[in-house]
Design a protein around this nucleic acid. Structure first.
Lengths: 138, 138
DNA sequence: AGAGTGGTGCAACAGAAGTGCATTTAATGG
DNA sequence: CCATTAAATGCACTTCTGTTGCACCACTCT
């Protein structure tokens, strides 16, 4: 039983061949991936399978969904530092307008915001847009 | 020349009947609206017209586009406090998971974030998700 | 009046997201 | 080890948002 299989098993996700491949693919990427990215990487697989795999991964806390403002959902593997379930510990994301890549900045947390009376915060999403380190240094 | 016509004219947007109606509609709403919302409100109008009107409004700084994480673009009229063009003064938005409405919290600004070396911030988007004041008090 | 610009209406397309159903694959129990 | 069962996958199709091209209309300016 490989490391990845153990990880999936721990999250009570059955480690099928497809899922292991998708996990590997995402682990190899430094940036968040869209459904289409995975689709292009695995010409053989059906979009539906990938779609539902991501949904399952998300439900089980293996990946988290990122909304980077492009209106295309991206996904990234949850890291030890990324406590997606806990409200107060959400990290932020960076979207590069040049290479169009979105990365997690797990060490950067969203500051606490005092909301007006009556508003109850349950979740937060902070995306910084600009130029990433790969694109900025020439 | 009405107040609205003056506003549009100031932003060098020709105040057509359609545009005035759309402006009025948005001014009457407390929350951000999606293209579909306007479409439903004006059964007579074409989606394309509304679409391009919103685009024009956005370009001319009459409305700002909001990405609240639903993957559906919403729009809200720019307020005196909402300096959409200036990076450091971005306000945040609140999305209610119950009534699905998105509101601007113009008095709340996005705190400054120290990015890792090499990252250049140009824009930011912060959405708090939870229960709004209308939905929370029973 | 005629030319030109910009706005509007109509049709069609692209891409992402999502659903239903049949079939295959994997886990479980005798 | 096979049979049963539940879950995963593949295929087809639908829906919705966003977008573009083209023709027509309205208005302005000379």
């Amino acid at each position: 039983m490989t490391e990845i299989e153990k990880t999936l098993d721990n999250k009570s996700v059955r480690p099928t061949a497809m899922r292991i491949l998708i996990y590997k693919f995402m682990a190899g990427k430094q940036n968040a991936v869209a459904l289409t990215d995975i689709e292009n990487a695995f010409e053989k697989a059906e979009r539906t399978t990938l779609y539902r795999t991501l949904k399952t991964f998300e439900e089980k806390g293996i990946v988290h969904q990122i909304d980077d403002g492009t209106n295309i959902s991206k996904f990234a593997l949850c890291q030890p530092g990324c406590n997606c379930e806990i409200d107060q510990d959400l990290h932020l994301h960076f979207h590069c307008g040049q290479c169009d890549k979105t990365v997690c900045l797990t060490e950067h947390k969203i500051p606490h915001i005092n909301l007006p009376a009556g508003y109850i915060a349950e979740d937060a999403n902070l995306v910084i847009k600009g130029i990433c380190d790969s694109c900025s240094d020439h």
